[in-house]
């Protein structure tokens, strides 16, 4: 009984605290925060956690592959109003295909309701990609080795290819800072900007779609038999990934 009472009281306290905050926002009634939701697909076929190590996909070069692990980082979300004023939305999101809890992102800052266009960064831009700076990402072992320029992974995509043969082979499609030569590094993030006007109100949800098939075809036809593992120190592979990723993210459904 006592326990139940405690839980109830705790519950009420948390609830009332939240309500207070809402009231404050409500009374000012200026700022709203859109929710972002992240989905993954293979050329329009949705990919869900149950596809991991299960569903086979054929890439543009004809290799049949399975997904073991997929994590990627998006950051620096910005909303631009009709006058070109920009509001950065604080926060970043590490999305893990195996964990549906990571599919939604609510930034910690807000904008006045209205029409906006959206910008975000795949990975971290130079200013944000600070080695070891984010304790949550460190805890997720998301770091990119210092000798390769440091900072964080942008993408970790592990799986097996040639799974339709008797000798499946592993691939580690990992993307982050590119190393030109020892101690000489090149930024490797992708800045996305979508021209579509998005009306943002109190309940707006913006879907960001990630088409994994694009990683293997556009503009670089990816041959897993050549580029499969140890790609992190491979400058050429890192830059091809960056180019292919530029077409992999699109704006999905906007719900109000």
């Amino acid at each position: 009984m006592k326990k139940i009472a405690l839980i109830l009281i705790l519950g009420m306290l948390t609830f009332s605290c939240t309500e207070d905050n809402d009231d404050k926002l409500g009374s000012n009634n200026i700022n709203v925060t859109p929710t972002f939701t992240f989905t993954q697909n293979w050329d329009d076929t949705a990919i869900s956690p149950s596809d991991i190590e299960n569903t086979q996909y054929t890439n543009a070069n004809g290799e049949v592959l399975t997904i073991t692990r997929l994590r990627y980082l998006l950051s620096h979300f910005e909303l631009l109003d009709e006058n070109g004023n920009t509001t950065p939305l604080q926060g970043y999101q590490l999305i893990d295909l195996s964990d549906a809890e990571t599919y939604n992102f609510i930034p910690t800052s807000a904008v006045t309701p209205g029409n906006y266009t959206l910008k975000f960064v795949y990975g971290f831009n130079e200013a944000d990609n600070i080695d070891g700076a984010y304790t949550d990402l460190n805890s997720a072992s998301w770091n990119w080795p210092e000798m390769l320029g440091g900072g964080y992974h942008f993408l970790q995509f592990d799986g097996q290819y040639n799974v339709n043969t008797t000798t499946p082979m592993p691939f580690n499609y990992h993307n982050g800072m590119a190393m030109v030569s020892e101690d000489n590094f090149e930024q490797n993030f992708v800045a996305f900007e979508f021209p579509t006007e998005i009306p943002i109100s109190e309940t707006t949800t913006i879907e960001i779609q990630f088409n994994l098939a694009e990683l293997f075809k556009n503009p670089n036809l990816w041959d897993l038999n050549t580029y499969n593992t140890s790609l992190m120190p491979n400058y050429e592979a890192q830059k091809m990934m960056q180019e292919n990723i530029a077409s992999a993210f699109t704006l999905g459904e906007i719900t109000q």
Binding site: T68, D158, G159, Q160, T167, P168, P170, N172, T229
Partner: peptide, 11 residues
């Protein structure tokens, strides 16, 4: 069949 792809030079 379930070996982690990070065990990359298994062959």
């Amino acid at each position: 069949p379930t070996i982690d792809p990070l065990m990359k030079k298994v062959d």
